[in-house]
Nucleic acid binder design. Structure first.
Lengths: 206, 206
DNA sequence: GGGTTGAATGTGACTTTATCACTGAAGGTA
DNA sequence: TACCTTCAGTGATAAAGTCACATTCAACCC
């Protein structure tokens, strides 16, 4: 039985109908949920796992925009679903994920029938807008060394971080060389230990 | 009689009710529609004029996120209205604007009763997300000289651009000195003529 | 084991952008 | 006219991005 808080906001009849017409799907790590240029088939409600959403610019550079995990809604899909536009970004599964895929008709019906569902959708939208606004500010004004340190701290909680410099560059929206150099500097200062595809955070405080 | 396409999507009864309970407001240039930290009083439907939405980061720097003009909906307000969060950005009137302010209760009722209204709201949200995603890419990867030239071309259509270097820096999310130097270089190449608070685009092609 | 290969990382040289600290210029007003 | 405030110009330096190439590592195959 899929657990997603936006489904809790539905009454029994609606929930039953929604689940009957939707499918729970499983996605292994590495799977592309959708990519730029594709059209939307339904609204994914993420039940578990983790999915990163990134976009590639005209320049060929990529940047991670945000992540989705348990209890999230794929906000990007809503716009594509309602207006028929194509995705501009790409979603890649990081940790095996499962999601309820709500087809368009059901989505329309839920929006029509349930105030709670509408609230959930709007909340999700609002949060996403906020995230992106913060990202704009971060990219435009914050220093790369601080952003890198912060990113590492956010991941260092449980053991070493498994990631390449190139992937880390996409996380931060910068170049691989910049990441390499900043990491080397941190290593010189004994704040991290580097090995191939792996960063161990040893003494890093914000 | 306010003209806004999202009102056209309502049936006569709903439109009449909505307009009775809403107020058309006028805003002179320079007026702050809302600022960061404030709470939302209602959803503005922009009828005419122009409003820029910008945010100021922790660093104290500002950047323009997007603009609203005739027939736009203040997407940011929706999230704040529905979830009770405070605004994170600031909206400043550039050209005298008028807007219908829809109070929360009416908004809820329209979302409940009108599929067309819902579609309009969702479309607006989708467009805004897209805009912000493009802005992230632009800020992260594109060169400042190209962005500046593009911005100037977007404004040069009717006569000289009246703006200070500082304001232009906020448009692009960079520092005033950077704008000054890039403009000087364009002037050396006879692509613009500079005077105090004014930029005349003479020979600039993309 | 030794050799080959491709991905990942290191680094120098150089350009672009950001920051800091000023100086000078324009335009309004007492 | 003298003063004052805002706007613009600029040198010095640091941070970040770009390009080109060298090196290192791990996996895989004989």
């Amino acid at each position: 039985m899929p657990r997603h808080s936006i489904l809790d906001s539905l009454n029994d009849t609606l929930r039953k109908e929604a689940l009957e017409k939707s499918r729970v799907m499983q996605f292994p790590p590495g799977q592309i949920l959708f990519s730029a240029g594709q059209h939307c088939q339904g609204l994914p409600l993420v039940l578990g796992g983790r999915v990163k959403v990134q976009m590639t610019g005209v320049s060929g550079h990529s940047i991670v925009l945000y992540r989705m995990d348990a209890d999230d809604i794929c906000t990007l899909s809503i716009g594509c679903l309602m207006t028929g536009r194509a995705y501009r970004a790409e979603a890649v599964v990081e940790e095996a994920a499962d999601a309820v895929m709500i087809p368009r008709g059901v989505f329309d019906r839920l929006m029509d029938q349930s105030a709670g569902f509408r609230l959930g959708i709007m909340e999700s939208y609002g949060r996403r807008l906020d995230d992106l606004m913060l990202l704009v500010e971060e990219v435009a004004f914050r220093r790369m060394d601080k952003r890198l340190e912060e990113w590492l701290l956010g991941r260092a909680a449980r053991g070493p971080v498994v990631i390449t410099h190139q992937e880390l560059a996409v996380e931060l929206g910068t170049a691989r060389e910049v990441v390499s150099r900043l990491l080397k500097e941190l290593e010189r200062r004994d704040m991290v230990k580097l090995s191939r595809g792996r960063i161990e955070v040893t003494g890093l405080l914000l």
